[in-house]
Design a protein around this nucleic acid. Structure first.
Lengths: 147, 147
DNA sequence: AATTACGTTTACGTTAACGTCAACTTTAAA
DNA sequence: TTTAAAGTTGACGTTAACGTAAACGTAATT
């Protein structure tokens, strides 16, 4: 029996289970933490910062698919070296917050800025990879000379 | 008159100026800071951490071309989201520190690790760029609908 | 002689992103 | 019913990467 069942009740409800298992809907804080290899403290912290906002069942947090997705984006951002605020900004870019054309235009500007920054990162990445390849090459040559 | 001239003396020394301007050799802390848009505090901090080690003229720091290069690499690392320690590690990978094959093999391992990490970053970068492009697209469509 | 410009060291302050208790509640199991 | 497991909210601690300020030296300019 899955943890989800544990949460929603003891005996699985056949009525609801019929076609609704198309995708896991809700997650406990532990589940999510485990899946993404972060601590629960981290998840609470992200919530405190407004990056996640799970609903509550009593006072217990219940994470939805949307939260999971945002968490994924945050962690992706981290791997890129972005700060939480930067990731938050980017996530906001993904869904249309502004409704009037002035806001949309400003959003487009911000998107362009980020793109430029990320493209610079791409260049830096490639340079670094090239350097590493060269270093590896030299190592190999050293080895063959030793042998 | 360049700052270099200021440093070496008031009147440019014809003797030394003859062919020695093939490349700027030394930099004051201000020059380097200005060129890379960091503060002098930052340069001293990097030195404290062992990332740079300028020679001294009296107690005044004199940065060489080697320092400049390392600084460049450090800042490149920063743009990738690397910590100073990580950048330091990478820089160490660039020149052969170990002489025996065991050390070299371990270095190769570390290089591979970094490469894997950076390649993961590349993937994340591309995904993020794709997301941003899509977001930009949606913005444009919103605009055209408004118009 | 006094100011200005650049350099130095020492040391405390700051922000981000959590870690690490502590003290407590609620639910599930033995 | 006691215990164990997972949840909660504070609140203080920690590390990295500098910022900022104090107190001082030196050298050139006014």
């Amino acid at each position: 029996m899955s943890k989800l069942d544990k949460q929603s009740g003891k005996k699985p409800d056949k009525q609801l289970d019929r076609k609704v298992d198309k995708m896991k809907q809700d997650y406990s804080i532990r589940e999510l933490a485990k899946e993404f290899d972060v601590t629960t403290r981290t998840l609470r912290f992200y919530e405190e910062k407004g990056l996640l906002n799970p609903s509550r069942s009593g006072q217990t947090r219940v994470y939805t698919m949307a939260d999971r997705t945002r968490l994924k984006l945050i962690l992706r951002g981290k791997r890129l070296g972005l700060s939480l605020d930067e990731s938050a900004e980017i996530i906001l870019m993904y869904d249309p917050v502004g409704t009037n054309s002035k806001q949309i235009l400003s959003l487009i500007d911000k998107i362009q800025d980020k793109r430029l920054q990320l493209e610079q990162q791409q260049k830096d990445l490639e340079l670094t990879l090239l350097d590493l390849e060269a270093a590896e090459q030299r190592c190999s040559e050293s080895l063959s000379r030793i042998h």
